[in-house]
Amino acid sequence: MSFAPWIKYLPGPHERRRTAATVIFPHAGASAAYYRPFAAALSAAADTFTVQYPQRAERLHEPAPQTVHDLARGLFEAGPWSSAAPLRLFGHSMGAIVAFEFARIAEQNNVAVQKLWVSAGPVPSHIAGLPELPTGDEELLADLADLGGTDPRLLADQEFAALLTNAARCDYQALNRYSCDATVRIRADIHAVAGRQDHRVDAASLRRWANHTEGRFTLSFFEGGHFYLNEHVDTLASRVLADVC
């Protein structure tokens, strides 16, 4: 079995001893292409995969998953992840939840997860208690503009905005249906990371990720907002590869 063509693979330097492969899980509305610079930085030292969600790019016409768990299950079933294990998972924003669910499924199937990096992501057991994310076109665009990370000129382009809102709506709907019990834990260590000026997450909420691991929990910050990672691509990649907190 080979990986689905929509899983973007960048091989690491195979002349070295193989280390844990990194799997990137994008934020809501994003395509795998958004994370190309980060994936390239990670692949300098290890195999790197970036997953593509339905309803965008080459998966544009695939049906949207009903739940985050369905999304994670589809991503897990899209390739022989045991052949790339151990895995290092990195999810940003909503991608942190998708990566968490992917980790649960991987561990249930005896695929080793070395570490889960949750970047600016809401805590699984607290999502059901949060206000629902918007799904109307205007509200969605306003929410995406508030988050940052997308060039305002692109948001003003009707064709691009239509594609973006459709993808984000599908992701938001799946997240609105999500719930996770406070007792659910993975075996892998969890490291939470975010921007110091992120108005969507804070240190107190990020520390609650500690409740979802049986392993070690660590936390760190970079300067910047919700999309801090765009300003710290190389440094963040180096820390992930070295598992430096």
Score class of each variant (00 low, 15 high):
residue 1 M to I: 09
residue 6 W to G: 07
residue 7 I to N: 11
residue 7 I to V: 14
residue 13 P to T: 10
residue 13 P to K: 14
residue 14 H to D: 09
residue 14 H to P: 00
residue 15 E to F: 15
residue 16 R to C: 06
residue 16 R to W: 10
residue 17 R to Q: 11
residue 18 R to I: 08
residue 18 R to H: 14
residue 20 A to Y: 05
residue 20 A to D: 13
residue 22 T to L: 03
residue 27 H to K: 05
residue 28 A to Q: 08
residue 29 G to V: 01
residue 36 R to F: 03
residue 36 R to E: 06
residue 40 A to L: 09
residue 42 L to P: 02
residue 43 S to I: 02
residue 43 S to H: 03
residue 43 S to N: 07
residue 44 A to R: 15
residue 44 A to W: 00
residue 46 A to L: 08
residue 46 A to T: 15
residue 47 D to C: 08
residue 49 F to Y: 14
residue 49 F to I: 04
residue 49 F to E: 01
residue 54 P to H: 07
residue 57 A to T: 06
residue 57 A to N: 11
residue 58 E to K: 01
residue 58 E to L: 08
residue 59 R to N: 09
residue 61 H to G: 01
residue 62 E to F: 03
residue 62 E to T: 08
residue 63 P to F: 12
residue 67 T to K: 11
residue 68 V to S: 04
residue 68 V to E: 06
residue 68 V to D: 08
residue 69 H to G: 02
residue 74 G to R: 06
residue 74 G to C: 05
residue 75 L to D: 03
residue 78 A to R: 05
residue 81 W to Q: 10
residue 83 S to A: 14
residue 83 S to L: 10
residue 84 A to I: 03
residue 85 A to I: 10
residue 91 G to T: 12
residue 93 S to H: 11
residue 95 G to P: 04
residue 96 A to L: 02
residue 98 V to D: 10
residue 99 A to M: 13
residue 100 F to A: 06
residue 100 F to Q: 10
residue 102 F to E: 03
residue 103 A to W: 04
residue 104 R to S: 04
residue 104 R to D: 00
residue 106 A to C: 11
residue 108 Q to D: 15
residue 108 Q to I: 02
residue 108 Q to T: 11
residue 110 N to M: 09
residue 111 V to P: 07
residue 116 L to Q: 07
residue 117 W to E: 00
residue 117 W to I: 02
residue 117 W to A: 02
residue 118 V to S: 11
residue 118 V to F: 06
residue 118 V to K: 09
residue 118 V to Q: 07
residue 125 S to M: 14
residue 125 S to G: 07
residue 126 H to W: 03
residue 128 A to D: 13
residue 128 A to H: 15
residue 133 L to R: 15
residue 141 L to Y: 01
residue 142 A to Y: 02
residue 143 D to E: 14
residue 145 A to L: 12
residue 145 A to C: 08
residue 146 D to I: 00
residue 147 L to H: 02
residue 148 G to C: 08
residue 149 G to H: 02
residue 150 T to G: 00
residue 150 T to Y: 00
residue 151 D to G: 06
residue 152 P to S: 12
residue 152 P to K: 07
residue 153 R to Q: 15
residue 157 D to C: 15
residue 162 A to I: 01
residue 163 L to E: 08
residue 163 L to C: 06
residue 165 T to F: 01
residue 169 R to P: 07
residue 170 C to Y: 01
residue 173 Q to D: 09
residue 173 Q to W: 04
residue 178 Y to A: 03
residue 179 S to C: 10
residue 180 C to Y: 05
residue 181 D to M: 10
residue 181 D to T: 14
residue 182 A to K: 15
residue 182 A to I: 13
residue 182 A to L: 07
residue 192 A to R: 07
residue 193 V to Q: 01
residue 193 V to I: 13
residue 197 Q to R: 12
residue 201 V to Q: 09
residue 202 D to Y: 13
residue 202 D to H: 12
residue 204 A to E: 09
residue 204 A to C: 03
residue 204 A to N: 04
residue 205 S to N: 07
residue 205 S to K: 11
residue 206 L to D: 03
residue 208 R to T: 14
residue 211 N to R: 13
residue 211 N to K: 10
residue 212 H to A: 05
residue 217 F to Y: 15
residue 217 F to N: 06
residue 219 L to W: 13
residue 221 F to H: 12
residue 221 F to G: 03
residue 222 F to L: 02
residue 222 F to C: 02
residue 225 G to T: 02
residue 226 H to N: 08
residue 230 N to M: 09
residue 232 H to W: 05
residue 232 H to C: 04
residue 234 D to H: 12
residue 236 L to V: 11
residue 240 V to Y: 04
residue 242 A to L: 13
residue 245 C to M: 10
